[in-house]
Amino acid sequence: MFNPLKDHTSIVLTDLRIKKSFDPGRNYIDPYLIAIVTDKKDGVLRMSSKRFDFPNVKVYERIITSDSTFSLYGPGNPGEFVTTTLMLMESDSDIRIVGQQLDDLISGTAEEVGAVAALSGNPSAIAITALAQKILQGVAKVLQQNKDDQICFVYDTWFQGELPPYGINQYKIHSSSVADVTLRVSPLLVGGQQGWMTFAQAEVK
Results as ranks from 00 to 15, higher is better:
Phe52Trp: 11
Phe54Glu: 04
Pro55Gln: 07
Lys58Val: 09
Tyr60Phe: 14
Tyr60Cys: 07
Glu61Ala: 11
Ile63Trp: 05
Thr65His: 14
Ser68Val: 06
Ser68Tyr: 13
Phe70Tyr: 15
Phe70Ala: 01
Ser71Phe: 03
Leu72Asn: 07
Tyr73Val: 01
Tyr73Pro: 14
Gly74Glu: 09
Pro75Cys: 06
Gly76His: 09
Asn77Gln: 01
Asn77Pro: 14
Gly79Met: 08
Gly79Trp: 11
Gly79Cys: 00
Glu80Ile: 01
Glu80His: 06
Phe81Gln: 04
Thr83Ser: 01
Thr84Ser: 02
Thr85Ala: 04
Leu86Asn: 04
Met89Ile: 08
Glu90Val: 09
Glu90Tyr: 11
Glu90Trp: 07
Ser91Tyr: 00
Asp92Gly: 10
Asp92Glu: 15
Ser93Asn: 12
Ser93Ile: 10
Asp94Arg: 06
Asp94Ile: 04
Arg96Gly: 00
Ile97Asp: 07
Val98Ala: 09
Val98Ile: 03
Gly99Phe: 13
Gln100Ile: 06
Gln100Val: 14
Gln101Cys: 03
Leu102Pro: 12
Asp104Pro: 03
Asp104Gln: 09
Leu105Val: 08
Gly108Glu: 09
Thr109His: 11
Thr109Tyr: 15
Ala110Trp: 15
Glu111Leu: 04
Glu112Arg: 10
Val113Met: 05
Gly114Asp: 12
Ala117Phe: 11
Ala117Cys: 01
Ser120His: 05
Asn122Asp: 05
Asn122Val: 02
Ser124Gly: 14
Ser124Leu: 07
Ala125Lys: 15
Ala125Tyr: 03
Ile126Phe: 04
Ile126Asp: 14
Ala127Asn: 11
Ile128Pro: 00
Thr129Ser: 15
Thr129Arg: 12
Thr129Gly: 12
Gln133Met: 13
Gln133Ile: 12
Ile135Arg: 01
Leu136Ser: 01
Gly138Glu: 12
Val139Pro: 04
Val142Thr: 14
Val142His: 10
Val142Ala: 13
Leu143Arg: 15
Gln144Met: 13
Asn146Pro: 01
Gln150Tyr: 07
Ile151Leu: 03
Ile151His: 06
Cys152Ile: 12
Phe153Gly: 04
Val154Arg: 03
Val154Trp: 02
Val154Ile: 15
Thr157Cys: 05
Thr157Ala: 06
Thr157Phe: 05
Trp158Arg: 05
Pro164Leu: 10
Pro165Asp: 11
Tyr166Gly: 05
Gly167Pro: 02
Gly167Ile: 00
Gln170Val: 05
Gln170Asn: 14
Ile173Ser: 07
Ser175Gln: 10
Ser175Asn: 06
Ser175Arg: 03
Val178Arg: 13
Asp180Ile: 14
Val181Cys: 07
Thr182Gln: 08
Thr182Cys: 13
Arg184Lys: 15
Val185Gly: 00
Val185Ser: 04
Pro187Asn: 09
Pro187Ile: 06
Leu188Asp: 08
Val190Gln: 06
Val190Pro: 04
Val190Glu: 08
Val190Ile: 15
Gly191Cys: 03
Gly191Lys: 05
Gln194Lys: 12
Gln194Phe: 07
Gly195Ile: 03
Gly195Asp: 10
Trp196Ile: 00
Trp196Ala: 03
Trp196Cys: 00
Met197Leu: 01
Thr198Ile: 11
Thr198Gly: 07
